[in-house]
């Protein structure tokens, strides 16, 4: 079986909803029928065959050759298999993923990994605002899995995160980890203003002292931490980082005491 490949023929004339093109939803569907799936969301109503040249036959291994910021909702809700985007993706890439791996070899738009529950999403370029965050009206953001951004992330990364691991390697925008409920956010390369704003629980791990912190965070000393050793080793073992992030005794700030105050921001001293 060869990877099911969607090669972008030209820049799409409208925004596309690619959520029907996941391993689960394409299982057992003939290529002829795949080409007829409607993915355009405006009056154009583009079908797969209008936008992509389709080849291959393995729905567990899907490749989008050529990217565009108009490719929204890539791999939404996928539960297994692998999806690879060679190029950029639009909004909500990997939203509500439950398993499998999604790799975006380019940049992703806003709300990448929004509400993820499992699996692994890796973005080699930058991600937009609200990485892993809930859509308007939802109570929790990321709820499990691993989300890696090798480049930068926009504002409000890991907003209302509840479970899982998000790692941003080249810096994030402001308010990273805002309103976190639990889980782990790693930001290397600088974290913008006020990380952890209104966080309840959870861990924000930084490679340097934050630029600013909400005044409702309090300094909690720097005792030796086995947790720091464990997470450092895990990040290296997973190929997320090359060297330890925190060291054996990171500085801790606790907060946000404007809310529950059981969260933590750790960074090497």
């Amino acid at each position: 079986m060869k990877a099911l490949t969607f090669t972008l023929v030209a820049e799409p004339p409208e925004r596309l909803d690619l959520s029907p093109l996941t391993p689960e939803r394409l299982a057992g569907i003939e290529r002829r029928d795949i080409e007829k799936i409607q993915i355009g969301i405006s009056k154009h109503g583009s079908e797969v065959g209008d936008i992509f040249r389709v080849a291959g036959n393995d729905p567990l291994d899907i490749v989008f050759e050529g990217g565009s910021t108009r490719l929204d909702r890539v791999a939404e809700g996928m539960r297994g298999g692998s999806v690879r985007v060679v190029g950029n993706a639009g909004a909500q890439a990997g939203r509500a993923m439950r398993g499998g791996t999604l790799t975006i070899e380019g940049n992703a738009g806003p709300h990448a990994g929004s509400g993820m529950r499992g699996g692994r999403l890796e973005i080699t370029g930058n991600a937009g605002d609200h990485l892993g965050a809930p859509l308007a009206g939802e109570l929790a953001g990321m709820n499990g899995g691993v989300l890696i951004v090798r480049g930068k992330a926009g504002g409000f990364a890991a907003d209302r995160m509840r479970r899982g691991l998000i790692a941003v390697l080249k810096g994030s925008g402001d308010n990273a980890g805002s309103r976190m409920i639990a889980g782990t956010l790693v930001v290397a390369g600088g974290s913008g203003e006020m990380p952890g704003y209104l966080m309840r629980r959870g861990s924000i791990l930084l490679d340097r002292a934050p630029k600013s912190l909400s005044p409702s965070f309090v300094e909690c000393g720097a005792p030796e931490s086995v947790f720091a050793a464990i997470i450092d080793r895990h990040l290296i073992a997973e190929g997320i980082l090359k060297r330890p992030l925190l060291g054996i005794a990171p500085q801790k700030y606790g907060g946000d005491n404007a809310v529950l105050g059981m969260g933590e921001i750790l960074f090497p001293r």
Partner: peptide, 18 residues
């Protein structure tokens, strides 16, 4: 504090040396 790291579940309990 409960932490799940790489499929393993850990508890972190505050004590007097950390």
């Amino acid at each position: 504090i409960s932490k799940k790291i790489g499929g393993r579940h850990f508890w972190r309990v505050p004590v007097m040396d950390g």
